[in-house]
Every structure is written in C-alpha cells, then in structure tokens.
Amino acid sequence: MFEATLQKASTLKKVIEAIKDLVTDGNIEVSETGMNLQAMDSSHVSLVSLVLHTDMFEHFRCDRNVTLGINLPNFAKILKCSGNDDSVTLKAQDDGENLAIVFESEGQERVSEFELKLMDIDAESLGIPDQDYNTNVKMSSAEFQRIVRDMTVLGDTCSIGCTKEGVKFSVSGDLGQGNITLRQTNSVDKEEEAVTIEMDEPVELNFALRYLGFFTKASPLCPRVTISMSPDVPIVVAYNVGGEKDTEGAGSLSFYLAPKIDE
C-alpha cells in the first residue's frame, strides 16, 4: 500500500492548481523515492514534470510501486476543501480504485476524508535528455508572470532573447509591438527580485505565450523561477516545490515547451 502525509496541504493544492489547466489526466507514479508525474498537454507542445521527493513528506510509505491515474481538475476540487494550515494524507491500496485524501487541521480538531476515483490512463513515459543548457536565468516568479501577462496583450508569440546584459522579452501583433528587458542585477535590496544570468552564448527563441501563461500559474509555489534555454530545443521553466527561494527544494515542478521556428 501507499500512504504519505504532507504537512502543508496547501503545497499540494498549489501544485495541482498549477497543472490542472494544462493537463487533464495524468499518472502519478509512486515509488520508494517519492511521487512523480510526467504528462504532455493534448497538443504535445508542452510537458509537465513534477517530482516530490520523500524528504518533503512528514511520513511516506510505499510497499510497492503504484500508478495513480488522476483526473487533475477533480483532484484540485477536492484539494480546495483543505484549510490553509491543514495537513494532507494520501492513501491507496496496491490495486485500489480510489485515492483516499484526508485533511487534518493543526490541532487535529477537524478531520475531512475524501475519496477520488482513480482512472486507467494510457500514457507513455518520455525520456527527457539530461542536458546542460546554454542559458539559465533566475528571476522573480511574480515578475515573470507579469511579463508574460503583459506580452499577451500584444500578441501570441514571445521572443525570449538573452545576453550577458539581460534578458529581453519581445512581442509583436496586430496592434503594435513591445518589449521588456530585465538587466542582470545582483545587488538589489530584495534578494527575491534579483535577476541572475548564467550563459555561454547569446540565445534567442520564440514561444507561444498561451503556454508560458499556463506555466506561470505555478508562481504561488516559489518566489523564484529558473528559465533554461539552448538553441533549437524546448525551454524549461522550473519552480522549486517545498523549498525556499532558489535553493534546492525537496521537489520541483518543471515545464517544457517546444519552440516556434521559422518555416
């Protein structure tokens, strides 16, 4: 059987909220190392990869690997029933048809029990090449969300260009064009707002803003986001889960998006 308790139900709630609009159904693979989910959106343009290591759980028991086929919008509905400071316990039998979800308030005076029907989801697992990226930009996740939202006003495709000086987001559409440049700033008052750029060579790629917008729904998870790019490969937009700032968390939520290329 599988049983795991997370001290903060809100963390799981934020994770599922962040992916439920991009992916409807997904298999959560549970093993002795933790919980993983990998799923593509229906058009095979983007991929979500969620990793929750056992060390972020208060209690974790998994006797045998289990696959939990989950309808994510329905899971999100149940998670919304948790209180802000509740813990959450997930339980499933080896061949069970349901996922039990139990919320407990801090003082354990309120216990809520739910069951989510599991599904058989036919999804193939993809091998993501383990690669070093040419460019890694770390910035405020709220700032990234704001830029993506602002770019969307003007068009549906955003160019992200990076040089040592800064990272430039550009868009053009029927009503005009715009761009926002963030300069590399190591000495800002608020550490969370710093923009740091590690790069080998300047890179510029084009991406669909619709998908970048989906990814920024993960902003409440972490004040920092890491954006990784290399020429002609999918961009990675990664958030730590259950960690602080951009230090290594006990989990991660990464989004991959294929670029747009000139025909």
Binding site: L47, L126, I128, I261, D262, E263
Partner: peptide, 14 residues
C-alpha cells in the same frame, strides 16, 4: 511565418 514544433521531435518514448 513561424511553426510550432511538437515535443515529440525532442523527447522520445522510454
């Protein structure tokens, strides 16, 4: 004109 690439051309099934 730009074309959206599919992830299938980057990531292969395990």
């Amino acid at each position: 004109k730009q074309k959206q690439k599919s992830l299938d051309s980057f990531f292969k099934p395990k």
